[in-house]
Design a binder for these strands. Structure first.
Lengths: 338, 338
DNA sequence: CTGTTAGCGCTTTCAA
DNA sequence: TTGAAAGCGCTAACAG
């Protein structure tokens, strides 16, 4: 059968306490003793039972990651990054996918992470005060991806300022009628981008002295289909936009199809800039705002780990990472690679 | 502080054993007792410590999911489906992302799932005999997604037959020079599709009495960039293909861009069919092979759960789910929606 | 139907 | 530097 700590102790001729110490690399174990334990353990192909260790120590060596969706590019990147950082640190990842409003409600009602994680990482959710209270009640460090909150660690970009730059790019090209293909800021799954990216759009218009027109803000629901429909609707206006800002690349892909169907040349007849810089975007020659997704995820994960392990000056607070407008052929013909 | 089973027992005026039984819904608990326990538990906001329960019972209520990548559409769907099925069944999901050849080697060397899962689900990996041995040594039920193996549960599609149908579709349209944009069957991360999809392609050619030409099989590495380059290379041949079969939709997206750049009309000048039927494909009017990803993932997850819980006739063995050729505008102009 | 009790396999004092 | 022993918070016989 599978070996227990007692088997190792017997084989090494020491007590189980010593085995425990040696295997965890604690100090105050004689080098020779440690070697004896290590080789006994490896001969027996021993690994400690994580559950026994967790029960005894009170540490779970597990971090919960809460995402609203898993099969969107952004969250795929996040999961990928967090998983590998945790693995490297010897931590397990417990994934919670909210999926929809029901799943979200259930999560915050039951708090299934209770008693099973050392810390929690919440990605891109605009939380209500009640939800924040639930998180606080966990009495565990909580990291936030995408928005700051006093008392929580966070890592994010400045969606507002970044969107502003994107729209300013369009303005600098001479565009005055600029449509917004947005997310729903009031969606029950409320996640962070829609709110601030819309604000940035409006601010950029104001900066440029361009009148804000409500009919130039259409929901695209963060899907290509939605983006296509939104573009279609705005192109049908008597005075259609000459340029679009899409709050996500995926919506921009949809808009691009609409342009193609309408026989419009990009960027001559209509320009578009997205947000995210997904890999596919370079490919579709889409101008966009590059955001460092893996970097954000890694930053918050490492700081969360530092907080847990109480390592030197755990760097609390809010980190804001840089974004960059990436100009490609969808706004600037001279950059076109198609 | 956070309540333990003893607090609940005291409050309900029963023993901890009774609390345990009542909370887990075991039979042989008087209804009134159960109610008393339940309300005591909810008043104290009690949840059992999973680690204590796992240590005592030997069951981990956790399933490990091993994927080669997380940020590809297919695996996103898989993770999504498995997570929600497990959550519903009260199980935790422990995610292992291999990432690259090193990660794969490390996983199979250390077997970090040992002592922490009741069962393992391995997605889309072509495993070596040694790797299978490692899995067997776990002495836990193992489910395979994408390939069968005696002694393991599996759920999959028939990649070979499905690819054959895809290529037959091209043949039925009159194409005789058909290029294959494939994955690398010898890639160190070897995952299942490349092997069998190529076989299907070759079989379809043979069926149709079309001579197999090695220069019409080019690697696209399962990326859009790769697909674009592969298409480019074949179009440069003296006698270029009039149609392509891409082993994944993503590679087909790349090829479509190559066609557009080359000024070729689709499907008049060149036709293409992909594989997977990702959501974006309907959108790009790409003919493809639809495969039921969520269904496969759900099927294997439920059967694995049934095996663990020893529920009635756990349905072992290999399940092969249906695929379907979806004809869109990239092969048949009459279906075009663009 | 309920309570008592002996673990589950570790970690962590405390002494030596 | 090491060992003995007391838990960690549950589950699972077993007895009643």
């Amino acid at each position: 059968m599978v070996a227990s700590i007692e088997d190792v102790a017997r084989k090494a001729g020491v007590s189980i306490a010593t085995v425990s110490r040696a295997l965890r690399g604690l100090p105050d174990v004689a080098a020779t003793t440690r070697d004896r334990v290590l080789s006994a353990a490896s001969e027996l192909n021993y690994v400690a039972s994580p559950f026994a260790a967790r029960l005894a120590s009170g540490r779970t060596a597990t971090i919960g990651l809460v995402v609203p969706f898993v099969n969107k590019w952004f969250f795929g990147e996040v999961i990928d990054t967090v998983e590998s950082a945790l693995r490297k640190a010897g931590f397990d990842l417990l994934l919670y996918n909210l999926g929809d409003a029901d799943g979200r409600a259930r999560f915050f009602e039951l708090m299934p992470v209770r008693k099973r994680v050392d810390a929690l990482l919440v990605a891109s959710l605009v939380l209500t005060d009640e939800e924040f209270d639930q998180l606080t009640a966990l009495d565990r460090p909580v990291g936030l991806l995408g928005l700051p909150r006093p008392g929580f660690l966070s890592s994010r970009i400045d969606d507002d300022a970044s969107s502003r730059l994107a729209v300013q790019h369009l303005v600098s090209l001479g565009h005055r009628r600029i449509g917004l293909i947005g997310g729903d800021a009031d969606d029950p799954m409320r996640f962070t981008p829609p709110l601030h990216r819309r604000d940035g759009y409006r601010a950029a218009l104001a900066d440029a002295g361009i009148e804000w027109r409500p009919e130039l803000e259409v929901l695209g629901y963060f899907t290509p289909e939605g983006g296509a429909a939104a573009a279609e609707r705005m192109l049908a206006l008597p005075d259609p936009p000459t340029a679009f800002f899409a709050e996500s690349d995926e919506m921009a892909y949809g808009a691009l199809r609409t342009f193609r169907r309408s026989g419009l040349r990009v960027p001559e007849d209509v320009a578009i800039i997205g947000f995210d810089d997904q890999p596919l975007s370079e490919f579709f020659d889409l101008s966009t705002v590059h955001q460092p997704v893996a970097e954000q995820a890694l930053d918050i994960t490492l700081r969360l780990l530092a907080t847990i392990t109480g390592s030197t000056e755990a760097d609390g607070g809010d980190a804001v990472l840089e974004t960059e407008v990436v100009v490609r052929g969808s706004t600037d013909a001279s950059r076109s690679v198609i």
